[in-house]
Design a protein around this nucleic acid. Structure first.
Length: 439
RNA sequence: GCCCUGGUAGUAUAGUCCGGUCUAGUAUAGGCGGCUGUCGCCCGCCCGACCCGGGUUCAAAUCCCGGCCAGGGCGCCA
């Protein structure tokens, strides 16, 4: 079939803008065929665009032969343009329909789709991810990613307003000696390089010049992790601030969380309703539990964790039952946190690192950083890392490193919290994990 | 990487325990035909599947072994 050209047609309205007040007016709509209900003498076409749907009504005897022959050819997911007249009606749920005067077909689709886009027969996540481009056309997914977009917009606004400068640090790095998470190796001309797992060291260096920075971007972890909250490629929202402590950035973080929840619940009413999810706006300040309090709390529930150990997932789940919403965990043992987290001056066994939890899931983590070169070297050695591998980073400490603090939020985990989705793959456009590299 | 559960038409499921009744059921999607107010439209007809490899057996969707993949959990995750 010969496809139509867009020509001089331009969209005048999105589907949701078609309201009874436009009765009698001519509109141009672009979108996709979601459903066709053909009753013989009358035919209903549900046109979908990213804002919603609107009904195109085709009474066989009242439209032109050209329109009739075009609608004869239509199938689900065809990309089309409709020029027609809005009609107020009592019969359709939204109170409007559009009677087409002219139809253009821009793109065709296989008759047998790999997924049921109307949601009558829900597909499993695997089948959905295999046909992700189509899956993302479903209203539920459009809602998820609009919510994510709204959250990112709110975060940027919030940070810009407070004087943070948005930066971009390298994704390709030279050294795999930062310890901890496994890195993905890449070929870099004749040398070996790695994909960055975090902007940590770079953002710390930037507080010497730009003072308050943030970065939103993807990072990579080559972990074996196979859970519903881990990805090999994820988006991190990182901030770092000069002349600040953990407490300062915790306050910033809780204010930000409240702001994001507020903006999303106001701007994404329709999307949240579609997802059937009620987003609560949290009160601040958030609860602050110390590591010791958490251990005691768990002990009372017969979960014993030796002091100094990290808290295992099942223990976090137990904790999440008592604290179902946001809370901080502070005063972690120094040895359980990264080398750059500052030990407490009054008790170096404890540190100024914190985690922001949402129920049992770690949403963000941060802390006051070490600003003394000497101490940083000591901590590197204690962690079994070679200071020589950090020479460029350590060099920064010779040029006036200010006291500083920061945190990082996992965007996908934040989106899980905002949408109520329980698998991180659902809130990632094209998820990457140990087993999935395509599409 | 380990443990548990699973893999049946495009999609989602029944059947698997206890092998033969399975020529593999149902819904939805798809094809054809009919229908002027549908909105999970309806009605009729049709098409379409046992993850891969090996084994046991007269006989395997069903039992056994290996592989791959998926879901959940664990570990790992500076």
């Amino acid at each position: 079939m010969k496809l139509d050209a867009i020509g001089d047609w331009r969209r005048t309205h999105y589907s949701i803008d078609i309201k009874p007040e436009l009765d009698g007016q001519e509109v141009t709509l672009f979108g996709w065929v979601q459903e066709i209900r053909d009753l013989g003498g009358i035919r209903f076409i549900i046109l979908q665009d990213r804002e919603g749907t609107v009904q195109i009504t085709v009474p066989r005897k009242k439209v032109s032969a050209e329109v009739l022959s075009k609608t004869n050819k239509l199938q689900k997911r065809y990309s089309i343009g409709v020029k027609g007249i809005v009609r107020k009606t009592e019969i359709t749920p939204r109170g409007v329909e559009v009677i087409p005067k002219e139809i253009k077909i821009f793109g065709m689709a296989s008759p047998q789709l790999p997924l049921d886009i109307t949601g009558k027969v829900p597909a499993k996540l695997e089948a959905r991810l295999e046909a992700r481009a189509l899956d993302l056309c479903r209203e539920e997914n459009i809602a998820i990613f609009k919510i994510q977009h709204t959250a990112v917009e709110a975060i940027r606004d919030f940070l810009f307003e407070r004087g943070f400068i948005e930066v971009h640090t390298p994704r390709i790095i030279a050294s795999a000696t930062e310890g901890g998470a496994a890195l993905f190796p890449v070929d870099y001309f004749e040398r070996k390089a790695f994909l960055a797992q975090s902007p940590q060291l770079y953002k710390e260096q930037l507080v010497m010049s730009l003072e308050k920075v943030f970065e939103i971007g993807p990072f990579f972890r080559a972990e074996e992790s196979h859970t519903r909250r881990h990805l090999s490629e994820f988006v991190s929202i990182d901030i770092e601030q000069a002349f600040a402590t953990a407490e300062d950035v915790m306050q910033l973080l809780e204010q930000l969380m409240r702001h994001v929840c507020k903006v999303v619940s106001e701007k994404c009413r329709k999307e949240l309703a579609l997802l059937n999810y009620e987003l609560k706006i949290p009160e601040i300040p958030f609860k602050r539990l110390t590591y010791d309090m958490v251990l005691e709390d768990l002990k009372r529930r017969e979960v014993e964790i030796p002091w100094g150990e990290d808290i295992p997932t099942p223990a976090f789940r137990t904790l999440g039952k008592t604290h179902p919403y946001f809370y901080f965990i502070t005063d972690w043992p120094t040895r359980s946190k990264a080398f750059y987290i500052k030990p407490r001056e009054d008790n170096p066994e404890l540190c100024e690192g914190f985690d922001l939890m949402w129920s049992w899931i770690e949403l963000a983590s941060g802390g006051t950083r070490i600003s003394s070169k000497e101490l940083l070297i000591k901590r590197l050695k204690e962690k079994g890392l070679n200071p020589e591998s950090f020479k460029y980073h350590l060099q920064a400490f010779d040029y006036g490193m200010p006291p500083h603090a920061g945190w990082a939020i996992g965007l996908e985990r934040l989106t899980m919290m905002l949408t109520g989705k329980r698998n991180i793959r659902e809130v990632t456009l094209y998820p990457r994990d140990k087993f999935r590299l395509t599409p």
